[in-house]
Design a protein around this nucleic acid. Sequence first.
DNA 1: GCCGTTTTCGGCCCGACTGTTTTCAGTCG
Length: 582
Amino acid sequence: MTRDRLADTLEEIALLLELKGENPFKIRAYRTGSETVRLFSGDIVKLATDGELKGIKGIGDALQQKLHELASTGKLEYYENLRSEFPETLFDLFKIQGLGPKKIKALYDSLNVDSTAKLKEVAESGEMAALSGFGKKTAEKILEAIAFRESNADRFRLGDVAEPVQMILESLRSHPDCLRAEAAGSYRRAKETVHDIDFLVATSKPTAIIEHFTDQEWVEKIIAKGDTKASVYLAKGLQCDLRAVSNDEFACALAYFTGSKEHNVAMRGRALARGYTLNEYRLAPKEGSDKGAPPIFENEAQLYSFLGLEFVPPEMRENTGEIEAAEEGDLPDLIELENLRGTFHNHTNASDGRNTLEEMADAAIDLGMQYLGIADHSKSSFQANGLDATRVRDQIVAIAELNARYQEEGSRFRIFAGNEVDILKDGSLDFDDELLAELDYTVVSVHNAMTLPEAQMTERIIKAVSNKHVTMLGHVTGRLLLQREPYAVDVPAVIEACAETGTIIELNCNPWRLDMDWRWWKLAKEKGVKCSINPDAHGTAQLEYLWFGAKLARKGWLTRDDVVNTMDLDAIEEFLGLDPIN
DNA sequence: GCCGTTTTCGGCCCGACTGTTTTCAGTCG
């Protein structure tokens, strides 16, 4: 049993109850329960198994009992019964943008729509448009949304696969015949979404490793199984491939399976120019070449070095100039997770976070941070219980009090009082300058009117960052990976404006967003725009999203100096123009 | 279904946007 499984089940119950037209507050209770499970800091699975969930806000008697049943037996009767009332494939429809429970129910009841395929059929045939409450435009929008889903159907967010990858790696490494194991492919390169996961093991007994890999409880289906290679499906259709190679082949194999394809082509070209051929197992003298056999490479760095290159970190291997830079010895010294000293843009239960100010701060201290920026939502974000001016001022006081307490305790830690202020439709901000001036810093973000034309959206954001009180711009494009396209915005123009106004751009490292996209950071850096790696944490556990942030910043070629939250407390206080706390 | 408490049941998050209608329902943030 996993935390995800518990949370997913509650979420699916909420969907099923919506289909049945149940009391919306009951539905919300399940959804809140699901979120609570997902964000709980502690071993929620063990507590559920042991029936010790009492006292957790958001999980009352009914949910405690259901979670206990599910965790201890692996099944939940209430859920199975609900589920049996609707066809399995109906769930896919919830992932189509623009389709909610009411429309799904109407389509199911009147046109027997129970799958994406059937949905597409009735949208194209005109049957849908003829239905009361639907029309031509609705059918068109749904077809567009289906196309978006289909083009991403077999992809997964980096954040969705990180846990299973670590679990499988641990399992592989625990096998006595495993000498080394790594996850390669786009996962290792930290692509924001991945198609499958490639594992690589060094061993002298490949069949034993293959047996072990395919024999795990989390394997849903074995696709292929040979002497040195196997492919399996995990739950939700995530494909995992395993290659077993000898220890001597491991370095070349790791480089080969890490890719990217384009990076490998360039590497092979370099090898050829030096009289060698490079494949997934080894570097060898080209036919007819007078070169002797190259040495055994113990690691990738030796391979790169042999080809006259600095070691290229996996995140950079996209053939966007890294080979040339490595040749010149010009690779940037990429930022490391350990360089981060604090972070901005985090929420508390004052708006839509799960944890209190104090819990968030304590969690940040536990992670070894020197400061934590709190940026709850502003008043226009009703859905998120955004703060009005009075509540913001109350929060500033609460933060000062808590800071004072940390001081008394001798803790070198500071909470910065900020806010994630909504950028309104016309580019003005949700709070007046007087209030903004009272804050330690300000994040500004777009949360509504996301369908504006590009020119208007760009102008809106530029106007917002031009306010002198604005410290940083939050999630630049508003994308939700695999779910929602970025809004139309001229990113280079925004970068230009941020450069002119000295506005920091956020790398929002919530794995649903990873926004601004890594492809833009080189340009931002060129223009002198600084980055802040922010988890957009809505609970203590989500502070660990910084792991993704460091990866994606590396993918954007960023160094420690490019990222403001690598500064220690003294430096960041000065940078923000604040008086030192002590 | 949860919470808080006037300890037993009433209240629970609100508004913009879109497309469908012609005054509003559904979806989204």
